[in-house]
Amino acid sequence: MIELADVPPDVLDLVGAYQYEIDGGFPVEHGYIWTTCASVENGNPLFWDDAVAAEVTDGPIAPPTMLSVWFRPHHWSPGLEEPAVPLQAHFDLKEQLSLPEAIIADNTITFHDPVRIGDRIRSRQVLRSISEPKTTKLGTGRFWVLDVEYLNQHDAIVGVETYTAFGYTREGVEGASA
């Protein structure tokens, strides 16, 4: 049976603290909305008919499930060195808790204010909880819950992605890679 070390105080201090505030690289734009709708043959008039959008949503909006689209870096841009790792707080925890393996057990997206054309969206990560040690069929470790909050330029929350992860060490495996 693997004995897990206590959670270090500096990691406990991260619970509820905002980390990794990132600005989306470009304003929300209609072209990507149409391309996304075309990719799934989504004919919802909210995204194609300005009159319907004006009546229902006070103007054009993006499909809610496009939330993360506005944060993916360009494949190339001037001066780009290492692209930011999505969910960096998750990878930090693996290292801080010495839990080399991890799975995302659950991913929930909650949709709030609509995302509108021209919005500048930013995100921030916040650790919500760390569990006591648990043993599952994967190994021994801890569950943690991380939120990625998305806000618009008016500081209104437009969505939250909630990840429940299980970081663990496999029995009998030393230093297994992530």
Binding site: T36, S39, E41, N42, N44, P45, L46, V52, M66
Partner: peptide, 17 residues
């Protein structure tokens, strides 16, 4: 993410705008 877009389309085909 594209599967999420398929799910959204599936739901709103049913509910309407």
């Amino acid at each position: 993410p594209n599967q999420a877009a398929w799910f959204e389309r599936y739901l709103t085909d049913w509910t309407g705008p």
